[in-house]
Design a protein around this nucleic acid. Structure first.
Lengths: 238, 238
DNA sequence: CGTTATTTGTCCGTATGTATA
DNA sequence: ATATACATACGGACAAATAAC
């Protein structure tokens, strides 16, 4: 009962694909077949398949079938919405997080301008330094809407903030607008990162929304350029 | 008849939102209302709404309604799948394209490795230099599967390759895997771009697939870092 | 080459559940 | 408690593209 039917089928197919039981270039079982074996309606099967399609894992061809993509996203989730911890544990890297800044503040005009938080909003500002294999390569500057993440502690921030928000607080994250650019290194970048002789950093600005549309987090993720990668799947729109 | 119903409703709502007739923070008309006024089934309305949601334009809240996002993507399409021309015409910029390289070649081992084209594939290699407001800021290095884009000419390449592929050849593009990184400027970058004193370039590697899952294009889009931006909306997955 | 079967695409109407007002 | 609104799911119909015969 715990899981929706379309999710169950989605996860089933995804598992078969990632375990190579269903191989790239081949077709998935037909919608009709899946409908019968799972004892669900065709709509439910189609929903699961369209989720796989928007992941870039399969592509449907009218009259032929649903094909498994030849070259799949290296990581099904990179470029999606996940925290640093979730991303890190999937690979074979040693990582750690340190938190040199953890303070309350109120959104003044300059903060409001870049973060899009309303003037006067109570915010929690956190710096998180991401160390990978012994080098400080990412500086995350987080601004959280304090009224949303009231009980957040340094220990939680070292672990996974998203897990805390979703599991402990029971809030749902709708999605995030991400803006990537290349910018000159700031004083903070030089202070906290092992930049070597890099003068530029790759910046990912995240505007994260709850499912009621309220902005609850603005984060600048500042990366040493040689260690920055970002992957996403773009679907042709209509 | 020309347009599907769900597309019609999708475009209708999108237009109302972008013209600010429906304002950020407000709700869309309810699914029920839209069902009646458009004389369609609720499924069809929901399909249009879910497309807006995956664009990051609206977010649905159970029991409350469908809310228009406060901060919308600057450009509904950036980060999606579109050519340079389509992106450029939407803004107030002067742009032009020059093509210093336009040649056939066969995928050898090194090309095959980075492009993922099979060894021995006949390819069309094109360099396209994108000039914006008088400066060469983007170098696009395209490798097309020649058997797919057989009739492609220099003139078409100066215009929109995607329009040619979709309208002239009647092929459908399924989507593209995009990989963003920061790399040292190559000789070609220095030769073709007005790099000033930049030593790095922002690189977007595109693996573009047709709707039957075959790879038909590999493109490296190499940007002068100060002029590079990329925007995308990431939805929380399940 | 035409006919039939298979497969995905679009669309409908309905029922029930759950969250919110 | 009732009404509204979105979420999940069912089953059916027909169209369109492709495959098999």
């Amino acid at each position: 009962m715990s899981q929706n039917k379309y999710l169950h089928i989605y996860n089933y197919l995804k598992e078969k694909i990632s375990s190579k039981e269903f191989k790239p270039g081949e077709k998935l079982p037909s919608e009709n077949y899946l409908t019968q074996t799972f004892n669900v309606s065709r709509n439910t099967v189609r929903r699961a398949i369209s989720m796989l399609a928007s992941d870039g894992i399969v592509t449907s061809v009218h009259g032929k079938g649903v094909f498994i993509m030849e070259a799949q996203p290296l990581n099904f989730m990179v470029g999606g919405l996940q925290g640093f911890k979730e991303a890190s544990t999937s690979n074979d890297v040693e990582y750690s997080t340190s938190i040199p800044v953890f303070e309350d503040l109120i959104a003044d005009e300059s903060i409001s301008k870049f973060s899009k938080f309303l003037l006067g909003t109570n915010l929690l500002k956190i710096y998180r330094i991401r160390n990978i294999n012994g080098e400080n390569v990412i500086l995350d500057i987080n601004y959280f809407n304090e009224s949303v993440v009231s009980g957040l502690t340094v220990d939680i921030a070292k672990d996974s903030v998203y897990a805390y928000i979703e599991k402990e607080l029971g809030l749902k994250i709708s999605g995030a607008q991400k803006l990537i650019s290349i910018e000159p290194a700031t004083k903070d970048d030089k202070k906290y990162l092992d930049l070597k002789d890099n003068k530029l950093v790759a910046v990912v600005k995240n505007f994260v929304y709850l499912d009621d549309g309220t902005l609850f987090e603005y984060t600048e993720s500042r990366h040493r350029p040689d260690r920055f990668t970002f992957s996403t799947f773009a679907r042709r729109n209509y």
